[in-house]
Amino acid sequence: MPASKQFAAVTGAGSGIGRATAVALAEAGFTVALIGRRAEPLLETKEVIGVAGGEAQVFQADVSNAASVDQAFLHIAAAFGRLDVLFNNAGRNAGAVPLEDYDTDFWNDVVATNLTGVFLCARAAYRLMKAQSPQGGRIINNGSISAHAPRPHTIAYTATKHAVTGITKSISLDGRAFNIACGQIDIGNAATSLTERMNKGVLQADGRMAPEARMDVTHVANAVVHMASLPLEANVLNMTIMASAMPFVGRG
Rank of each mutant, 00 (worst) to 15 (best):
S146M: 10
D84M: 06
E196I: 12
A181Q: 11
A79E: 01
T113K: 05
I180S: 05
T218A: 12
R123N: 08
S68M: 05
T113C: 14
A24K: 13
H162R: 01
A234P: 00
I76Y: 10
P231R: 05
N142Q: 12
G252K: 09
Q57S: 15
T113L: 06
A22P: 04
A72T: 00
Y102F: 06
A3G: 03
M246Q: 15
V32N: 04
A149E: 14
E233W: 08
N238W: 07
V63F: 03
I76R: 09
H162A: 03
E40A: 11
L74Q: 15
T218D: 14
R197M: 11
T195E: 00
R82D: 04
A56D: 04
S193H: 14
I187R: 01
V58M: 07
A3F: 08
I185Q: 03
I171F: 11
T218L: 07
S64D: 00
N88A: 08
V10W: 02
F80M: 04
V111I: 15
I171G: 06
C182Q: 03
G201T: 06
M1C: 06
S15A: 13
A9G: 00
K46R: 15
T21S: 14
M246H: 12
P211M: 00
G207T: 13
I140P: 04
L194C: 12
I171L: 14
V202N: 02
R176V: 07
T45K: 11
R123K: 15
A94E: 09
M129T: 10
A61E: 09
V48H: 13
N235P: 04
